[in-house]
Every structure is written in C-alpha cells, then in structure tokens.
Simulated scan of single mutants.
Amino acid sequence: MSDRTGEAQTLAPSAALSVETVVRVHHWNEHLFSFAITRPASFRFRSGEFVMIGLPDGQRPLLRAYSIASPAYAEELDFLSIKVPDGPLTSRLQKIQPGDPLFLGRKPTGTLVADALLPGKRLFLLSTGTGLAPFLSVARDPDIYDMFDEIVLVHSVRRVSDLAFRDELEARLAEDPLVGEVAAEKLRYLPTVTREPFHTQGRIGALIDDGTLFAGGPGFDAATDRIMMCGSMDMIRDFAARFDALGFEEGSNAKPGAYVIERAFVG
C-alpha cells in the first residue's frame, strides 16, 4: 500500500476478503468521488446488492459497506463515495489512485434487489446523494426491464456537480449493448437539485406532491407500483411512513413486498 493511504504494507487475502486493484478514480467535486476495482472471476452479485470495501488498519482491515454501482455483467466493480475529511475509511479512501490495492468482501448481500419486490407495472428508484449507486446497477440490468413497463430513476442532490453519472444516464446508457434500446423506451431519469438553479428543482417529496414524478400519469398505486429507496436516513424514514400509509408493504428477500430499503444502511 502506498503512502497515500498511510500504509506501507502488502495486503493479504483471507477467507472473507480478496485483494483487488484500483482501476480508475473519478473525483466529481470536493465532496464526491467514484472508483472502479478489478473483479474476481468467482465474484457474483445481484443488481442492487452491497459489499464490504476496506483498507488495512493496523492488524485488522477497516471495512465499510458500499453498494455496487456496476451492472452484474461488468468486468470491473464500480463504487460511489462521499469524502469525509475525518472519516476513518473515507479520509484515506478518497486518496486512492489506479494501481493501489483494496480489500473486497467475498459475499455481497442486500435488500435493494428485484427478488424482494412483488410483480408490478411501474418501478420507482428514489435516491439522494450516493444512494444512486445501487440503482446504477439496477438500471443496467436487462431482467428489470422484463419485470416492469416503466422505470423512473430519481436522483436528488444539493448541487449540479453532485449529479454523478449524469452523462451515463442521460446519453451513454442508450449505447449499452444489453439494455440501450429497451432503456430508451422504458427508463425515465429524473435528476433534481435543491440548492442551485437547474431544470428540475426541489426535493423528491415536492416532485411527488406537484406531480412531476409521474409525468402526467397517475399517482402511486400500491397494487401495481413498486419502489426502491436509497439515500439519507431522514428521506428513507419519511417515505417509508408515507408509503406505509398508502398501503405499501415493505419487502425483503424472505417476503417480497411493494417497496424496499437497504436495512443495513438505515438500521
């Protein structure tokens, strides 16, 4: 490990962790970055799952859960992260460069998966900040387009520069060889900014209340609409209560429902 991460040692794999290499790093602004690492040949995951990522910390690895942002068929694994100046892991992780080694957990898991949802017609992917990450994976999953007639991906951020992967979702997704054609027909990407001028402004709740979220279609229907949420704990708590009141039931891998959140991130 280089001096950039404060370590001068070679990482060793274990039964729970493999050692992967950073392939690329992109800094979106002073608060946000993404990175890609090599993918072990044996590593399998479902779109929307998370995995442990880490660096050495003395005798033990320092690990945190990160949603996988790449599609399940990708040769590399993408992640999206905030930069926390005094964060035990992110203060070091934000300094990684291509060629650096990282720990990768061998067992991805999570509840932001299609298996935890009942069949439906519309799928709403509601995200704030880095909560976009699992939906970057879901939106590039060919199977999700077989399950739903319409998919709405909402990304709410404070500033325009926080709209990570905006170009990917607005333009380059159409070039994807597996989902490009069907995504152009079924996926609606709705970025919104709360603290700077932008063509769509306001929090997700406001977009629901004024109908922007539905683009002229009907409001939420618990019988046919399905929802995934990832982002701030306040957002998830507020919307979980809202959807509960509308008759939506939370789903899990054991019992599919009408909406899902990532329990590992919100407690």
Rank of each mutant, 00 (worst) to 15 (best):
Q59P: 11
G180V: 11
L246H: 00
T111V: 08
F220I: 07
G202C: 07
L93S: 08
P40Q: 08
T10K: 12
I96E: 02
L187T: 06
M233I: 14
P98Y: 02
T109K: 15
D143Q: 14
F214D: 09
L207G: 03
R106E: 05
I204Y: 06
V260Q: 03
R172H: 14
F239C: 05
V23F: 04
E185R: 14
G251H: 01
G257R: 05
L32Q: 04
A69L: 08
E30H: 15
D234G: 10
L80W: 09
S47P: 08
F45C: 08
R60D: 13
D141E: 11
A184Y: 08
T224E: 07
F265T: 02
T38R: 07
S34Q: 03
H31G: 15
P119D: 01
P142I: 02
A174T: 08
P13N: 05
R188A: 11
F50S: 10
A206K: 15
D141H: 06
G257H: 04
T21R: 13
A241E: 12
P101D: 03
A183F: 08
M235F: 09
L112D: 02
S47W: 02
V160E: 10
L178D: 11
S47K: 04
T90L: 09
M1Y: 10
L102R: 01
A206C: 09
K186Q: 13
D3Y: 12
F43L: 15
T194A: 09
R159T: 09
M52S: 14
S34C: 09
T38Y: 08
V193M: 00
T90G: 06
R92F: 12
P40C: 11
V23R: 11
L89I: 07
R44Q: 12
A41D: 14
L62N: 13
T109A: 15
E150G: 07
T194I: 04
L117E: 05
F124T: 03
L190N: 05
G87H: 07
D221F: 04
L213F: 01
A245D: 13
F103D: 05
H27D: 13
A133N: 10
G105W: 10
P177V: 01
G129K: 02
